[in-house]
Nucleic acid binder design. Sequence first.
DNA 1: CTCCTTTAGGTATCTAGACGAGTGGGCGAG
DNA 2: CTCGCCCACTCGTCTAGATACCTAAAGGAG
Lengths: 262, 262
Amino acid sequence: MSPLSSGLLGDLDPTSDRAVFRQIADQLREAIDRGRFREGEKLPSEAELVDHYGVSRMTVRNSFSILQGEGLVHAEHGKGVYVRPRPPVRRLASDRFARRHREQGKSAFIVEADAVGSHPKVDSLEVKEEKASQDISTRLGSVRRVLARRRRYLLDGRPVEFATSYLPLDIARGTQIAEPNPGPGGIYARLEELGHRLDHFEEEIRARMPSPAEVKTLHLAAGVPVIHLIRTAFDTEGRAVEVCDTVMAADAYVLAYQLPAT
Amino acid sequence: MSPLSSGLLGDLDPTSDRAVFRQIADQLREAIDRGRFREGEKLPSEAELVDHYGVSRMTVRNSFSILQGEGLVHAEHGKGVYVRPRPPVRRLASDRFARRHREQGKSAFIVEADAVGSHPKVDSLEVKEEKASQDISTRLGSVRRVLARRRRYLLDGRPVEFATSYLPLDIARGTQIAEPNPGPGGIYARLEELGHRLDHFEEEIRARMPSPAEVKTLHLAAGVPVIHLIRTAFDTEGRAVEVCDTVMAADAYVLAYQLPAT
DNA sequence: CTCCTTTAGGTATCTAGACGAGTGGGCGAG
DNA sequence: CTCGCCCACTCGTCTAGATACCTAAAGGAG
C-alpha cells in the first residue's frame, strides 16, 4: 500500500504554465505544511513519485532540490528524503553580557546550556597573534596586529556557532586572555580586572547563505542560512577593546534585544 | 576569443572523489572570489563550459544551481548567468525608535531613505480588523481580535521589507491608527497621544529561507534569506500595545544594536 | 547466536538529446 | 533611414536511460 494511493498528493495540471517540477514541489510543500508529512517523516521515494506523476526521475529530483533549497527537507543517501525537523533554538537575550552573569564563574554558553538540559561543548580552540584585517583594524581603532581567539560551540554534539574574538595586543598580550582558557567569567571578566571596565557593546547583524567552509564547520544542511554577528565591546573610556565575529546556524538561534523608547 | 582560453578556469581532477559539478562550482566560486569575474559580470555560458570541461550540459547547470543556492550568481533567461551584485544595505540602528526621531513628522523609513538619496515608497497598504493568531494573542496579552496594518516598503523600486503591525482593538479602534495614513510620526506618535507613553521595545530576530509567498512579495533572488523580526512595544504601565511582524530581504539590511554592559 | 554476504531499494551523479522561450543583433523591405 | 522579421545564442524544462554508492534487512556460514 503506497502512501500515494491515499490521496496525499494530487495530479498535475497540464494546462498550467507552471513547470511540472514546480507543481510537484508545490504539492509536496503543501502536504508538509498541512502536516500530512510530519517532522522527520520520510517523503515518497523518487521512484514512487515517478510512478505517481508519470514524469522522469530528473523532474522529481528537481522538485526535491527546490524543497531542499527552502530548507524544508533533506535527503539521506541510500535512505530517502525526509521532512527536516526544526531543531530547538537557543535564545540569546540582550542581557547575556550583564555583569551579574559574568560574575558567576562559568562561561555564559555552558551555564545557559546546562540550564535547559543540553550538553554543551567548546572545541577548535585556537589562540594566536595575527595581522588584523582591514575591517577589524578599523573597528578596533587602527591596530596592526591582534590577538585572535577562535572557538566553535556545540550543543548535544551539533555545532551551532563559530566565533573569533580579536583584541589589541597592548591589552591582551601576556595576560590570561592569551591563554587557551581565560578563566572564570571569560575574557570580559579579565578585561575588567585589567582596568578596562566595560561600558557597552555594539552588535551588527546580517543574514546570508553560508560559504562552503561554513557549511563544513557548522555541519549545515541545505537551505539553512547563517546569522553573522559582529560585536564590539567598548570600555568606559570609549575605547574598543574587543571585536567578536560570530557565525551562527540560523536554525539554532533566535536573538532577542531590548530597546529603550527614549 | 573565449574567456576560457585565457586560463580563468582550470581543469577537472578525474582522480578526485569530489563530484564533477562540485569541482566546476568550486572553480567558478573561486574565480568570483578572486575578482576574476566582477559584480554584474557575465559568466561563461553553459555551452562554453560544456566545451571547456567536456561534460554534459546538465552537469554544468548543476554547478550553476549550487552557486545560485549560495546567492553568488543569478541567471537571466535568454541572456546569461551573472555575478549577483551586492545591493546597498540599509542600516537599522537601535535608536531608530527614539522619541526625538518620532517628533520630526515624516515616517522613519522616508526620512532615512531621503537622507541617503534613495527613492522610498510604501505600498500594499491594508488596514483591517481580524482575529489574532495564537502567537500574536499571546504577545499582546490574550486579545481575541486585533487591528492589523500591513504595508510593503520599497527602495528605488525594489521591495525590501514587508511588515504587519497588530494592535489591540480597545486601543486602536476609532482612532487615527485605524486610518490608512496614521499621520506624522506614525502609529507610535498616535499611541503616545492616546496616553500610552512608550517605555521600551523587545525585538526577536530569526533568519531563514523565504516561503514562496515571500519570494514573490519581496522579489527575492535565489539564495537570499530573509530576516524575520518581531517587535513588541510596551508602554510605561508594562502593557504590550503593539506587535510588529517584519520580514526583510536579508541582502538589503544590517541591524545594529547597542547593549549596556550593566 | 553472531557475523558476514547478499540483495532490494534508496539517492548521487552523469550523459545525450529534444523542445520551449526570452534577448538582441543583423538584414532586408519599404 | 526605419521598422519588422529572422536567426543565433542563451537559459528553462523534460526525457530516458546508465553507473555508482549507501542503507537496511534477510539469510547463510560459522
